[in-house]
Simulated scan of single mutants.
Amino acid sequence: MSRRRMPYLPEFIAPTRHTDPLEALAQVRLIYESSVTHLRDAMQRFVAGEALPGHVRAYYPFVRIQTDTVARLTNESAHLSYGFVAGPGSFETTLTRPDLYDKYYLEQFTLLLQSHRNELEVGVSTQPMPVHFSFAEHDHIEGTLQTESCQLIILCFMAIKARWWLMILILMAPQILQSEMVTIAHMVALPMTFMFIT
């Protein structure tokens, strides 16, 4: 029997379909805030010394549209180089920071719905949200963590391919040995550097 712990995830949010761009944007906000809140709460619990029930994970929202035609169904936006898909198929992307990009997303959703007269599907993607992206502007936790806790952050919060563990440990060893306190920036930035290299 495997001893691998199950991921500790936010409450499940089922994919939804929308013909109203405002409703689609509201669903994106709901999923994004759920993920951010989950990561923040888990980090606060971790810093307070609580053992978490599994590897903490949260994911970005996605938007998807499916179309069977190349043609755009409206001439209103024919002069624009965005707000439509190039051909038949299923197209999706992950979304971040709806608090910053809400006007942009709303314009894109509106144009996609006008151009293709199809539903937008909004759901939880498979792209993990890095824990440090969930920190509020003035969140600073490194002063409250001991070295042992900093070392555990990688195990609790990071999704990294196994072949990079050795490299990360080799790079982190001098800092861990020379200092009683390793900052959260060291523990988060190094793994994130390697997470995207495959």
Rank of each mutant, 00 (worst) to 15 (best):
Q127Y: 14
D41K: 10
H138C: 11
V131N: 02
F84A: 12
T147P: 09
M43W: 13
E180F: 06
A48D: 14
T37W: 05
Q175N: 14
R5M: 11
V85R: 00
V28W: 08
V182E: 03
T69Y: 07
P98E: 00
Q44T: 06
H79C: 10
E180I: 07
A42L: 03
A24C: 09
E23R: 10
F135N: 08
F135V: 00
T67Y: 03
R163C: 11
G54T: 05
L100A: 10
I176N: 06
Y59C: 04
W164A: 09
V182S: 05
F157R: 05
V47N: 07
P7S: 06
T110I: 02
I176R: 11
Y32R: 06
A185T: 14
P61E: 00
S81L: 11
F109Y: 09
G49E: 11
V56P: 00
Q175W: 14
T183E: 09
F135E: 05
I160P: 05
H55V: 14
S35K: 00
T110N: 03
S125I: 07
G123P: 05
S149R: 11
I176W: 12
N75K: 15
P128N: 09
S81N: 13
F157S: 04
F135G: 01
M187Q: 07
L152D: 10
W165K: 11
R117D: 11
M1R: 08
E119F: 06
G83Q: 01
E142T: 10
S90E: 11
P98M: 00
M6F: 09
Q146P: 03
L112E: 05
A173E: 15
G49M: 13
A189P: 01
R40D: 06
A86Q: 10
Q27L: 12
E119T: 08
S149L: 08
V182C: 06
F62E: 04
L106H: 08
N75R: 14
L113A: 02
Y8Q: 03
A51D: 10
Y60V: 04
L52P: 03
L113P: 03
S149I: 02
T144R: 15
T16M: 04
L166S: 12
L190Y: 08
R4S: 11
L166E: 14
Y82T: 09
I153K: 03
I184G: 04
D20R: 06
D20M: 02
A173W: 12
L120D: 04
S90K: 10
L106Y: 01
L30E: 14
I153A: 05
Q44A: 10
L100R: 13
A58P: 07
M181S: 14
I141V: 08
I141A: 04
M195I: 07
